[in-house]
């Protein structure tokens, strides 16, 4: 007997799913903000000439790039309060985990963009008598930013997808909202398919837009 699709489980509970989507968006934006902030600091540390700054930054980056984010979520949510008495809400724990984990990746995006600018650009600026600060701001950063754009967007997408791990902490985001709806309606196929399609639509559309913007940026400079 063929399965009969029935999306009423979704249509009747769309407010729950919508508020879940809101949770996903808030967590994503907050996570990106924290990740960029810490990531920029880490990148500056790694690029500095001082070993005491470079080493801790490198260790941090390597650790968080090479361990699963789910472990970080649990560490912040269950580990911290038990040992240190710092209790984080599910949002706080998810934000800490996301921000810190993605900071490692953002740091590498920023650093990669900056070191990718050819040495000749530094030299040309110096030869014109530009100060380091001005040279960095006017010559290096604009070129680096352009090269960072694609990996930066990619990292943001990864982060958005990673927010679903907060469902494991029972934080109310899209996936957790879906789980709630499923336990009430016993319609996993329809509900989870809709959730997948929502992610697909949003992320695919966003990636198309960013690709288009990038192509336009290149065309504008005659390349």
């Amino acid at each position: 007997m063929p399965y009969v699709w029935d999306f009423s489980a979704v249509t009747r509970n769309w407010t729950v799913l919508l508020s879940g989507l809101g949770g996903t968006i808030v967590l994503s934006l907050a996570g990106i903000a924290v990740g960029i902030l810490i990531g920029a600091g880490l990148a500056a540390m790694r690029l500095s000439g001082l070993r005491v700054l470079r080493w801790p930054a490198t260790a941090w980056i390597e650790f968080f790039r090479n361990t699963p984010p789910l472990v970080h979520f649990f560490w912040f949510f269950y580990g911290l309060p038990m040992a240190f008495g710092i209790t984080l809400s599910s949002f706080g724990a998810a934000l800490a985990a996301l921000g810190i984990q993605s900071s490692a990746f953002f740091a590498e995006v920023f650093r990669g963009g900056i070191v990718s600018v050819e040495r000749g650009q530094w030299e040309a600026g110096r030869a014109l008598g530009m100060s380091r600060a001005r040279l960095f701001r006017r010559i290096i950063l604009p070129q680096a930013a352009r090269r960072m754009a694609a990996p930066f967007v990619e990292r943001c997408f990864e982060l958005v997808k990673t927010t679903t791990l907060a469902a494991a902490l029972a934080h109310h985001e899209l996936l957790y909202a879906a789980m709630v709806v499923v336990t009430e309606t016993y319609r996993p196929l329809e509900v989870y398919t809709v959730v997948a399609l929502l992610f697909l639509t949003v992320l695919f559309a966003a990636s198309q837009v960013s690709e288009w913007l990038e192509a336009r940026g290149r065309a504008m400079q005659g390349r």
Partner: peptide, 25 residues
């Protein structure tokens, strides 16, 4: 390719474990 790259891996896992069996029995 787009389907799998633009959806979270946890959603994929849950879909294959909880949703797909409903479809294929």
């Amino acid at each position: 390719v787009e389907c799998f790259r633009n959806t979270p891996v946890l959603v994929q896992l849950i879909w294959f474990y909880y949703a797909l069996p409903v479809l294929i029995g």
